[in-house]
Each structure stands twice: as structure tokens, then as C-alpha cells.
Amino acid sequence: MRIELTGVSVEVAGRRLVHDVTLRAGSGRMVGVVGPNGSGKSTLLRCVYRALRPAAGTVRLDGADLHAMDAREGARLLAALPQEAGTEFDFTVAEVVAMGRLPHQRGAGRASAEDTARCARALARVGAGHLAGRGFLGLSGGEKQRVLIARALAQDPRVLVLDEPTNHLDIAQQLEVLALVRAGETAPDGDGRAGEPGGRLTVLTALHDLNLAARYCDELYVLAHGRIAAAGPPHDVLTPELLAEVFGVRAHRVRHPETGAVQLLFDRLAAPAADS
């Protein structure tokens, strides 16, 4: 399932934070949104998962206006992991992940055996099956992040929107989670949803780490001051010139010895010479 943003602008408290953004993530692709702090990444994604409504433009899933969809229908197609997600109540991990099945249940129906099995598979996929009986509030930051990703996967979406999914994870966990998300498959059909059984998830994610973005994303969109500064494959986008202009750093490009992906080494930009 493809996701398309066309001319999207977003306003918060009367201030326009995102300006006329057009972005496309093709079916089964992993697309990254990168940019410095305050560039509008989280604001843009909040519009995509319907926490905000665009002041202008549209967000479409396979051509259908996402903001015009019934909430339950939209939740069956798109799952999100916001940057600051969690729960104030001390549910067990199994109960938190089970919340991902709510869009597929009718009314106040109880979880089925299939729901329980899908939740268990989602926890196993993120390496957190052993946490099922633990209280969510007692988990470490990294454990909570894994559980919330499992909740999103248990939702069996076609599109996954992730805002800084590697927050609170150590480097090994970061690599594991992004590899899992990139290789993620949608659930086989059987509940009347459109789409090909077992197809790859379409993923739209904001990332701070440019090297992780370069390694795992098919395309990148660079945001600066709420506008698209560049877009395309990581090798074409992450140029020293753009990184100096947008991020204020001097970048040296190298190749990953195994994957061949562009990787970056950073220095501070030389300070301008003082006037004599």
C-alpha cells in the first residue's frame, strides 16, 4: 500500500510549521524523513497518523483520503509509534500489545484466540516474548520501545509510521529493530482487507541517525525549516554540500564494507575567520 502526501502544510497554535510538503512512499518501501531538531519531522508525521489535521493538502493511502476515513478503518490500515508513546496505567506487556488488535474487533468484543496468537508473534518478533507478564511501567526505556513496536505490528497494518523508533535502544537493538521493520510483512488476508497476502510493509519513519537512515531506507526526504530541502536515494541525497547547508557539519562519505551503503563521518564546520 502506497502513502502519498500532496501539498501538505501543518499549523500548530496559529503558526505554520510544515510548508507544502509532497512526499511518496511506494508500496513495500521504507522511506525516511531526516532533518535537524525543529525542522518539522514529528509535526509532519503527526499529520500522517491523524494526531493533527493538515491546514492544506492531503494524505492518501492508495488514493483514498486518510483523514476522510472512519477511524477504525484507518487504524486497520495504518499503525503509528509516536516519539513519546506509552501508557499511564500499569497494564501488563501482553495487555499493551493486545491494544493493537482493537481495530479488528467488533464493538467491545473479547480477544479471540487468533488475536492472542498474533500478539504473541509480534512480541516474539521484537525479542520481547519473555516480558509478556511484566508490568509495562516497570520496564526499561528500551524494553518499552520494543513492546510498543510489537503493539504496532500486532495491529497488522499495511503502513507503519515511526517517529524516532530507535530512541532508548542500544546500538545492537537499533540495528535489530530497523532490520525487522524493513523486512516486515503484512499479515495474510483473511479478514476482508485489500492487498496481497504477506506483502512488505510500507514504512515512513523519522530518524535522527543519518547512518541508520542511509543503511535502511530506500529513499530519504530532508526537511529544513518545515520544507523539503532534498529527496531521493540516500547516496544521492546525503551529499557534503547538503549536510553542511542543512545540518551545519562537514561530512566525509565512506562505503559500508559489507552493504555498500553510504556512511558518514562528521566534523564541525570550520569557524569563519575573524576580521582583522
Score class of each variant (00 low, 15 high):
residue 1 M to Q: 00
residue 5 L to A: 09
residue 5 L to K: 06
residue 8 V to C: 05
residue 9 S to K: 02
residue 11 E to P: 00
residue 14 G to W: 00
residue 14 G to S: 10
residue 14 G to C: 05
residue 15 R to I: 08
residue 15 R to G: 02
residue 18 V to E: 00
residue 18 V to W: 01
residue 18 V to A: 02
residue 19 H to D: 09
residue 20 D to E: 11
residue 21 V to E: 02
residue 24 R to Q: 08
residue 25 A to L: 04
residue 29 R to A: 13
residue 29 R to P: 02
residue 31 V to R: 01
residue 35 G to Y: 04
residue 35 G to Q: 03
residue 37 N to E: 09
residue 37 N to K: 07
residue 37 N to F: 05
residue 42 S to T: 15
residue 44 L to I: 10
residue 49 Y to E: 02
residue 56 A to G: 08
residue 58 T to E: 09
residue 62 D to N: 10
residue 62 D to Q: 03
residue 66 L to G: 09
residue 66 L to Q: 04
residue 67 H to L: 07
residue 69 M to D: 05
residue 69 M to F: 03
residue 71 A to I: 03
residue 72 R to S: 03
residue 73 E to D: 12
residue 75 A to M: 09
residue 75 A to E: 05
residue 76 R to L: 03
residue 79 A to M: 03
residue 81 L to S: 02
residue 85 A to P: 00
residue 87 T to L: 09
residue 88 E to W: 06
residue 88 E to P: 15
residue 94 A to F: 00
residue 94 A to R: 12
residue 94 A to M: 02
residue 95 E to W: 11
residue 95 E to R: 08
residue 97 V to T: 13
residue 100 G to K: 01
residue 104 H to Y: 12
residue 105 Q to P: 01
residue 106 R to T: 15
residue 108 A to N: 05
residue 112 S to M: 10
residue 114 E to A: 15
residue 115 D to V: 09
residue 118 R to W: 13
residue 119 C to E: 14
residue 119 C to T: 13
residue 120 A to W: 03
residue 122 A to S: 14
residue 124 A to R: 15
residue 125 R to M: 12
residue 126 V to D: 04
residue 127 G to P: 03
residue 128 A to C: 12
residue 128 A to V: 11
residue 129 G to I: 10
residue 133 G to F: 05
residue 133 G to Y: 05
residue 134 R to N: 06
residue 136 F to L: 14
residue 138 G to Y: 04
residue 141 G to P: 13
residue 141 G to A: 13
residue 143 E to C: 08
residue 143 E to K: 08
residue 145 Q to Y: 12
residue 145 Q to M: 12
residue 147 V to D: 06
residue 147 V to F: 13
residue 150 A to N: 12
residue 150 A to L: 11
residue 152 A to P: 05
residue 153 L to D: 01
residue 153 L to Y: 02
residue 155 Q to L: 12
residue 156 D to W: 03
residue 158 R to N: 00
residue 160 L to K: 04
residue 166 T to S: 08
residue 170 D to T: 10
residue 172 A to W: 08
residue 172 A to R: 15
residue 178 L to R: 15
residue 179 A to E: 13
residue 180 L to W: 05
residue 180 L to K: 07
residue 181 V to F: 06
residue 182 R to G: 08
residue 183 A to F: 01
residue 184 G to W: 07
residue 194 A to M: 06
residue 204 L to E: 09
residue 205 T to L: 15
residue 205 T to D: 06
residue 206 A to N: 11
residue 206 A to C: 13
residue 207 L to K: 03
residue 209 D to N: 11
residue 209 D to V: 07
residue 211 N to T: 07
residue 212 L to H: 09
residue 213 A to F: 09
residue 214 A to W: 14
residue 222 V to Q: 11
residue 224 A to S: 15
residue 225 H to T: 04
residue 225 H to R: 13
residue 227 R to D: 10
residue 227 R to A: 15
residue 229 A to T: 07
residue 230 A to N: 14
residue 231 A to S: 14
residue 237 V to S: 10
residue 238 L to D: 08
residue 240 P to G: 08
residue 241 E to I: 06
residue 241 E to W: 12
residue 242 L to Y: 11
residue 245 E to Y: 02
residue 246 V to D: 11
residue 248 G to P: 04
residue 249 V to H: 02
residue 251 A to W: 06
residue 253 R to G: 03
residue 253 R to A: 12
residue 255 R to T: 14
residue 255 R to F: 07
residue 255 R to I: 08
residue 258 E to S: 10
residue 259 T to F: 07
residue 260 G to F: 04
residue 261 A to K: 04
residue 264 L to E: 04
residue 267 D to R: 07
residue 267 D to K: 01
residue 268 R to H: 11
residue 270 A to N: 01
residue 272 P to E: 11
residue 273 A to N: 01
